[in-house]
Each structure stands twice: as C-alpha cells, then as structure tokens.
C-alpha cells in the first residue's frame, strides 16, 4: 500500500469538506473493495477519509412503502433486517449473497453503490427497483447515477447519505457467481410494480450495470417466464474474460432473467 494521510471526521459536512479539499483523496466506507485495491497498489489516494464515525449514516427505515437504507449500513444488517425482508425480500436476499459472512460484516451499501463495480450486486437492485440515491447535495435517480465502469454521477465532495427503494409488487435477483470472488459473472434483478417492469443486469456489461429493455417490454405485456422465450440478449457490449466470454454471458442473462421471473415474489 502507498502511504496516505488518515482522517476520521465526525460529521458528514466535515467528511465532505475533507473530500473537496483533497482531490486525490478517497472516502473509506467498509473498505471491502478500496483496501484490497490499495494493497495491490492499483489505487494511490493521497488521503483516506474514514466514514466509520458517521453513526447518523447507519440504519434502515421503512415508511409509506419505501425502504430507505443509510449509506454506512452493512450488508449483514440489510440481509437480516426483518423490515427489509418483509418489504423487499429480494433486496435482503441480495445483501445476504454478497461476498462471505466476514465481508458482509464490514461492507456497506453506500460503498458498493459509490464504487459501481461492474460485477457488484447492489447497482442491479438500484436500477431495477428505481431507487433514488440521496447525497449531501441532492437526490439522483438510479437511472442517472451509474454512468460507466466504476463511474457515477457523484461530484467532488459529494457523499451518498442514503438510498431509497420503492417496494415493488414482486421482485427477485438471480446471480450466477464466480465461486472464488463471489462477484456476479451475471446477475439479473427483475422488479414489477404496477404496470411497469424493470430488468437490470450486472456482471456482464462492458460499461457496467444496464437495463435490458427488450426483456422489460416482453414482461410488461406478460409477466411470465414464457414471455422471455425467443428473447435474446445481444453479445455486443458484453464482457469477455477468463471467467466467461460474451456469448456465454449473453446466454446466462436470458437464463437468469427467466429464473428471476419464476422466483419473483
């Protein structure tokens, strides 16, 4: 790891000020991605702004059919929250499938969403559920938030404070995971709310998470596994790597989408 200056602010405002002041600094949430990246010397932040003391960024609230999860809430808390499990079971299940138990004890939803790893799970939930990402400055619709590989709409000194998810009528997330890293090779989140259906795909796209609008249209007409028969995800724009080539990923997107529709509740 390269050397850095360490800060542990007590308020979101102080954290934002530090982040603005140190353009080459990084915010540290659970550290489950940032610390390994720094250990491999793939990142060299001048300053680390540790958000561990920002206790008002922890917690879950369910109100008027909207689940709001504060940014520093750990995956284990979401996975085991009776309220989340009741309002959006697919979201609790997704959180319980991230990494392994020790990773879920440290990793946070805000860290995952801000990092926008193309194989992370939460970005798919945000897009499919039509979440709103709240920051210290504004509210951003998930559709406008994820802008590319590890890229988001967040500006300098902007910190995610919470994410709110409107509860759908039905939803499910299916992940075909890499057994070593536990990241998604392909993950598909399907959500139905009223007449609207949204299908978000993670792990596969060469610019990160995306919506599969062709599948969405078919499922809007008929929310059933059979509606996806004959629907095919094009290979163009999908990743090929040692884990899976684009052709295989395209196939998996169809399979995972069908499984998610079948399991949606």
């Amino acid at each position: 790891m390269y050397a850095f200056n360490y800060h542990k602010p007590a308020t979101v405002a102080d954290a934002a000020a530090l982040a603005s002041q140190h353009a080459d600094g990084k915010l540290l949430a659970g550290g489950m991605t940032l610390l390994p990246t720094m250990k491999q010397r793939l990142a060299q932040p001048s300053d680390i702004i540790d958000m561990g003391k920002l206790n008002d960024l922890k917690g879950i609230e369910v109100k008027d059919g909207v689940v709001t999860i504060k940014a520093m809430t750990r995956h284990v808390t979401v996975a085991t929250s009776a309220e989340v499990r009741k309002a959006i079971p697919a979201l609790a299940e997704l959180a319980g499938g991230i990494g392994d138990p020790a990773v879920r004890n440290r990793g946070t939803i805000g860290g995952s969403v801000a990092n926008n790893d193309p194989a992370a799970d939460y970005p798919a939930a945000c897009l499919a559920l039509g979440a709103t990402i709240h920051t210290n400055k504004r509210a951003i619709a998930a559709d406008d938030f994820f802008t590319g590989l590890f890229e988001t709409a967040l500006g300098e000194g902007e910190i995610i404070t919470s994410i709110s998810f409107p509860a759908p009528d039905k939803a499910n997330y299916q992940k075909f995971r890499n057994p070593a890293s536990r990241y998604a090779i392909v993950g598909v989140f399907v959500a139905k709310k009223g007449g609207d259906v949204r299908v978000a795909v993670t792990g596969a796209g060469d610019s990160g998470v995306f919506r599969q609008k062709d599948f969405e249209a078919a499922l809007k007409a008929n929310f059933a596994v059979a509606a996806l028969d004959g629907k095919h995800q094009p290979e163009k724009g999908l990743n090929s790597d040692i884990h899976a080539d684009a052709e295989y990923r395209a196939h998996l997107i169809g399979v995972m989408a069908k499984r998610a529709v079948a399991a949606a509740k």
């Binding site: 360490y6 542990k8 540290l28 550290g31 489950m32 610390l35 390994p36 680390i48 540790d50 561990g52 284990v76 138990p101 020790a102 990773v103 004890n105 440290r106």
Partner: peptide, 15 residues
C-alpha cells in the same frame, strides 16, 4: 471486532 467476524487483513488498525 465488537463481536463480528471480520478479515483482519482488510481493515485499517486506525479504523
């Protein structure tokens, strides 16, 4: 750490 199992290779002592 405070009762939770964590991977001590992936946490800063200062945190």
């Amino acid at each position: 750490v405070d009762g939770d199992a964590v991977k001590s290779c992936t946490a800063l002592a200062l945190s």
